[in-house]
Design a protein around this nucleic acid. Structure first.
Length: 938
DNA sequence: GCCCTCACG
DNA sequence: GACGTACGTGAGGGCT
């Protein structure tokens, strides 16, 4: 049956419903998992009210709900600023959009949206078609932009007041009939949609003018006749802008539609489908209403949440919900096969288990497995002792195996199917540690959740993510310190020597705490919109980093030893000379003694005392003194340079060589840096010297195995590229596309000098500014960095912002976002909290700069993480291993004959790492180097 | 255990 | 108008 006379079409403005619902209701969340559903709840209530309203003869024969598809429409092509000053969508609303579409379909109402068009355009086209076919239309909306459609069988209905809007109401609003509404809007403009109109002319004046001249075109043609001089001039000057405004506000009857009016015929909802959706959303009242109306049974909505619910959309609340108290004495020691089988059955039943391993060392490469604890339900945890020894330790630190322990390999054999079962989630705190321990026993644990990483995804910037700190903060419980069991310092014992009963209390408690933290944190991901960040940027790092750490890197201890010897000689030489210059023996390593000699005894100028009341003897200060011709500070600088290299690198690195592998195994901290960067410890392999020639030679000690090469690939200028993208600076983007020297380009733009034959000093200054921008530039900081007067530095910065105003806007917006939300985000959704952003005093400045830097440094960190996560699969067929990450660099060890393959593959992965999540407006470029050692490769 | 200094990106 | 300032880390040595 075709749509025509006697038919009545209802067009519901879905987006308006959503926003009204969102703002009318508190931020409700779904009880079982914390999903924000306030707007969905309101939306469903409104739809329910709509479908159950008695309309009699006015009842629609056809109906549809129309949504806006995306923010960008064809109007942005006409006028880029259209709707540009709309506030950002609230964090917790966007995830509800797809659910409102599902709700509409559950109500069995046609659900319509079209890319590139606003809901209003679709409504216009449908209204025209229906009217032309001889039917009537009611638009369920109170949006004034739709009022131009009223008349000739098209009416509106304000859904809140349930009040019809006809030609009279339109005239009341605009002072003209519906056919001239567009003309008035074009003149008056619209602040909300950012339609410019004519400045100084509002609806009242616009209506007067249109009434007088009949229509807009006539008015613009005869604008010269207007008596008021100001108004006349405005219309003449802004004629073009007014015509653009008209194109923006005019709704088009010819919007393409890929469906027919007939397909919108009203259908009864299927009660089962509708109740299915509503119960999934856990809307109990509405589900019951539907059941009542359709005289059917309502489905039972589980009142047992999957996990404790959060109150609101904020960060996880303090204190645990409905958990039993933690009682260390209540835990089970699992020491026989039957009990273990029972635990395994419970784990399979639950589908998840919290796990913690106990070992003899914090170094996973050397630690021996001592026991495993398990927890399935809060308060019910068990410990499987495996490697405890009885009595006093013998000469080798071991002893007889303690009683009541199962065979380690038998237990691992029983647990392995669980630990590797795709259907059983393993929950750990700092899973990388346990993953490595178990990997050494042939178990590749998966899938994983990690409460340390959950906390990091949610709380980066708020606090650290150690279990004790989290337990204290979120469970209000202080777990037993390990010191209680093993002591500390010289008398410290191994966990293997701890009696089994005490070990059970400690170890099982950790699993219990981990499970509770998981139950609190996991539901917080969705409402805080960090699910993707956690699942795509944090969690997959665990096996990747574990692999890199276990691979380690070979070093040449003899090379380091030779350097240490040479450094010792130099130090002695510098020390003698310095003490001769000072006229007294003193400890060159003591800033306190040095400061007193320089500034009190020798009376040199430039002594500045810091907070602690001590003179600063930093390199900056000593360099200034040396430049004035003083020899003592120069010798101290020489001494310090060598002393640092010797103590931190050439002496220390060989002590980290693992006796079994003969290699150095660093440990990467995933949560160490607030921005998403990794941190490397024990040893730190991310700060191996390179800037000085002497320091660079230390890199020669990092070598490839025989027949292999080290390959280093690093991102070129990645942070500046990200800045060019996020701040949307066309000049910078273009320079990156053309492969131009970015610092020279900046200098050229700022100072108007050509790139060809540029003074290196000018380029250096531009480079310092480029870096400064990323750090949240200040005149003071730049002046110190470049050693130029502060006023001059400030003038550079002013020029820079004048030339690149988008950067200033980006920085201002970032700070404003941080102030409003309490956090900033990277392009990839990583959230970095900024708790001090609204502080007063000097802390505020630091928080601002950190907020400006975080999305840039963080996005770079996200990109290299994405590359690292894809890398193991990408290079699986090559005789190559990824060994190190240094923020923008990845170091590989690869068999000589596969170097070219490795470079091609790794480069492809790294350069494409942002995609498909983000399509950058700049290319990512990766430079590669090869060598027998790291110095050659870099 | 804090402070200073300095290595890296 | 003064204040204190580049962003993010980890390690070693001095000193209390």
């Amino acid at each position: 049956m075709s749509f025509g006379k006697g038919h009545h079409l209802h067009l519901i403005d879905g987006s308006a419903f959503i926003f009204r619902a969102y703002h009318a209701l508190p931020p409700l969340t779904r009880k079982s998992d914390g999903l924000p559903i306030g707007a969905v709840a309101g939306f469903c209530n409104m739809l329910w009210k709509y479908v159950t309203d008695e309309r009699g003869a006015d009842a629609p024969t056809h109906a549809a709900v129309i949504f806006d598809h995306s923010a960008k429409t064809f109007r942005n092509e006409i006028y880029p600023e259209y709707k540009a000053n709309r506030p950002e969508l609230p964090e917790d609303l966007r995830p509800q959009f797809p659910l409102t579409r599902e709700a509409t379909k559950a109500f069995n109402i046609a659900c319509i949206e079209t890319e590139g068009y606003e809901a209003d355009d679709i409504i216009a086209a449908l209204s025209c078609q229906a009217r032309d076919a001889g039917g009537s239309v009611t638009i369920i909306s109170s949006d004034k932009d739709l009022m131009q459609l009223v008349g000739n069988g098209v009416g509106m209905l304000d859904p809140m007041k349930n009040q019809p809007i006809g030609p009279d109401e339109v005239f009341e609003k605009f002072g003209v009939g519906p056919d001239r509404v567009v003309d008035v809007q074009s003149l008056a403009g619209d602040a909300v949609d950012n339609v410019p109109g004519a400045p100084g002319i509002g609806i009242k004046t616009a209506a007067l003018l249109i009434q007088e001249y009949g229509d807009l075109e006539t008015l613009l043609e005869r604008a010269g006749e207007i008596k008021q001089p100001k108004r006349r001039q405005t219309l003449i000057d802004h004629a073009e802008q007014i015509r653009i405004s008209k194109r923006l506000v005019t709704l088009d009857c010819d919007t393409p539609l890929d469906f027919t009016l007939e397909s919108l015929e009203v259908k009864e909802p299927d009660p089962q489908v509708l109740m299915g959706f509503l119960s999934e959303m856990e809307f109990r009242t509405l589900t019951n209403r539907v059941a009542e109306r359709f005289k059917t049974e309502a489905p039972v909505i589980s009142s047992a949440p999957v996990a404790p619910a959060a109150d609101g959309a904020g960060v996880a609340p303090k204190g645990g919900p409905d958990f039993p108290a933690i009682d260390r004495a209540s835990y089970t020691t699992i020491s026989d096969a039957a009990t273990l089988e029972q635990w395994i059955a419970e784990i399979r039943e639950a589908g998840h288990v919290a796990i913690d391993t106990e070992t003899t060392s914090l170094d996973e490469m050397q630690a021996e497995l001592v026991g495993i604890s398990l927890c399935v339900t809060a308060g019910k945890a068990g410990y499987i002792p495996l490697g405890h020894v009885a009595g006093e330790a013998d000469l080798f630190g071991g002893g007889a195996k303690a009683e009541g322990q199962m065979d380690r390999d038998a237990v691992l054999k029983a647990l392995k199917p669980v630990l590797e079962d795709d259907a059983i989630l393993k929950i750990l705190h700092n899973a990388k540690y346990d993953w490595k321990i178990l990997a050494r026993h042939g178990v590749r644990m998966a899938p994983l959740d990690d409460t340390m990483l959950l906390s990091y995804a949610l709380h980066a910037g708020l606090h650290n993510h150690g279990m004790d700190e989290l337990s204290q903060n979120y469970l209000n419980h202080a777990p037993q310190p390990i010191k209680d069991l093993i002591g500390s310092g010289k008398s410290q014992i191994s966990f293997a020597q701890v009696p089994v009963d005490k070990a059970t209390g400690y170890a099982a408690e950790d699993a219990d705490v981990t499970l509770r933290l998981w139950q609190i944190f996991r539901p917080q991901l969705m409402p805080n919109a960090v699910t993707t960040a956690y699942e795509r940027l944090e969690r997959p790092m665990i096996p990747v980093l574990a692999g890199m750490e276990m691979a380690g890197i070979r070093i040449d201890p003899q090379h380091l030893s030779r350097m240490s010897g040479a450094f010792a000689q130099k130090m002695a030489q510098y020390e003698d000379e310095a003490q001769r210059l000072a006229g007294t023996k003193f400890n060159l390593g003591s800033p306190k003694q040095l400061g007193e000699i320089l500034f009190d005894q020798m009376g040199l100028q430039g002594g500045a005392k810091g907070k602690s009341g001590a003179y600063s003897t930093s390199a900056d200060v000593l360099e200034d003194l040396a430049a004035e011709g003083h020899d003592l500070p120069a010798r101290v600088l020489d001494w310090r340079g060598v002393a640092k290299l010797k103590s931190t690198y050439t002496d220390a690195l060989p002590t980290y060589v693992n006796p079994e592998t003969g290699r150095v195994h660093t440990s990467y901290s995933i949560t160490g840096a607030q921005t998403g960067r990794l941190a490397s410890t024990e040893p730190n392999l991310q700060n191996i010297p390179i800037r000085t020639e002497e320091g660079r030679r230390i890199r020669e000690a990092f070598i490839a195995e025989t027949g292999n090469k080290l390959v280093s690939l690093d991102y070129s200028q990645i942070e500046l590229r990200i800045l060019a993208h996020v701040a949307n600076i066309p000049a910078l983007q273009q320079a990156f596309h053309e492969g131009i020297d970015i610092h020279a380009m900046t200098a050229s733009q700022m100072f108007g000098v050509p790139v060809e034959g540029m003074d290196p000093m000018v380029r250096r200054q531009a480079k310092a500014i480029n870096f400064g921008v990323i750090y949240g530039i200040s005149g003071f900081g730049l002046s110190r960095n470049l050693r130029i007067p502060r006023a001059e530095a400030q003038a550079f910065i002013d020029t820079y912002f004048q030339r690149f105003p988008g950067i200033r806007e980006y920085m201002d917006k970032t700070v404003a976002d941080a102030k409003r939300d309490g956090f900033v985000r990277t392009l990839f959704g990583r959230r970095i909290n900024t708790p001090n952003i609204n502080a007063n005093g000097p802390a505020a400045g630091g928080a601002k700069r950190a907020a400006i830097n975080a999305p840039i440094q963080g996005a770079a960190a996200d990109i290299i993480r994405r590359a690292m996560i894809r890398m193991p699969v990408a290079i699986a067929d090559l005789p190559a291993k990824m060994l190190l990450q240094v923020h923008d660099e990845l170091v590989f060890e690869v068999r000589e004959d596969a170097v070219d393959d490795l470079i091609a593959t790794a480069r492809r992965v790294m350069e494409g790492a942002a995609e498909p999540a983000v399509k950058l407006d700049v290319p990512l470029v990766v430079d590669a180097g090869v060598g027998d050692n790291w110095a050659e490769a870099h």
